[in-house]
Design a protein around this nucleic acid. Structure first.
Lengths: 166, 166
DNA sequence: TGGTTAAGTTTCATTATGAAACTGATGATA
DNA sequence: TATCATCAGTTTCATAATGAAACTTAACCA
């Protein structure tokens, strides 16, 4: 009975979950944005078991969200730094942060605040449509198969019905 | 050795992870946006074990992301519908979707497309700052303690150093 | 009488997690 | 020289979660 993986799934959510759908990985990425980059740093801030941390870091490197950089030799030791892909994952985590702020804490009682490092202005991450810049209302969206959708018509129609497009 | 929970954590990310940091919950929410709302529907589309599904639905109801609505009596059967909070969680999942599209599939080969239900226009969820509407660059943000940050100065200073504010 | 649908439970083998102790290489201290 | 401390992991082992499949309950159908 292996743990399920969504590595081959045609759903971008499922694929993201292989690396973000976990209790630890997003927190490790959070620590990275706070400037933590070494094994013991992650371990102490998160209280994660060292064996689990080892596995998670390896996975994040493997998936390309973190890269290992040697910062000394004899013995060689590594730091873990966010990659381009890793920084993109952080955006998802910022969305999580906003969700957490809104629903888990009283208004004005949020424990963490984000600022633009240049201007020093408060930042509030929200999810909008790229072209209109209007907030997305999940109540009002429709999903349909894209070019990469598997060519199994029955499932396609079953799932998307009238939204089926060739 | 209990599974760790972040229920009391002062981090909004950690708190969100208690419900979103899981392989199944985000997919269940995805199915909800696709219109699935019954036990067997979730089970068949996701291939999730029925025992696990039972637990996950209960958790999502418990956390207020889904609500149970009886759609028939004798025997009473329930449908699961997204709440206000649930729809907000979907926004996070849309951010995941964009991440998955960008990094897991070739450009123009994304398997799922989102549309505005009214206008029919393509939607691309991105994470921006609420006031400027500028995309957030995680490379250029700073975190500092907010009003809800625990009052343990040493940790506060350790973690946020110069960003410490009274 | 038997079959189907729906929404779960129960059981059990397999995995993953958490805690703590241990390793190995080096540098600093007494 | 002997001991301690740091860093980045492994190893071990008890406990918890997962996945698969069979079972249950309650009603309707023919």
């Amino acid at each position: 009975m292996k743990r399920k993986t969504f590595a081959g799934s045609p759903c971008p959510i499922a694929r993201s979950l292989d690396v973000l759908g976990d209790w630890w990985n997003p927190l490790i990425l959070r620590e990275c944005t706070y400037g933590v980059c070494r094994f013991d740093g992650f371990q102490q801030w998160l209280g994660i078991g060292r064996n689990i941390l080892t596995r998670r870091l390896a996975q994040l490197v493997d998936e390309g969200l973190l890269e290992k950089r040697a910062y000394q030799s004899s013995p060689t030791r590594y730091e873990y730094h966010l990659t381009e892909k890793g920084y993109d994952a952080v955006k998802v985590i910022l969305a999580m942060m906003e969700f957490g702020d809104k629903w888990q804490f009283k208004k004005g009682k949020e424990p963490i605040r984000l600022f633009d490092a240049d201007s020093g202005k408060r930042l509030h991450p929200i999810v909008v449509d790229a072209s209109t810049k209007e907030p997305i209302d999940p109540r009002n969206i429709t999903a349909g198969p894209g070019p990469g959708f598997p060519k199994i018509q029955s499932i396609r129609r079953q799932r998307f019905g009238d939204n089926y497009i060739e």
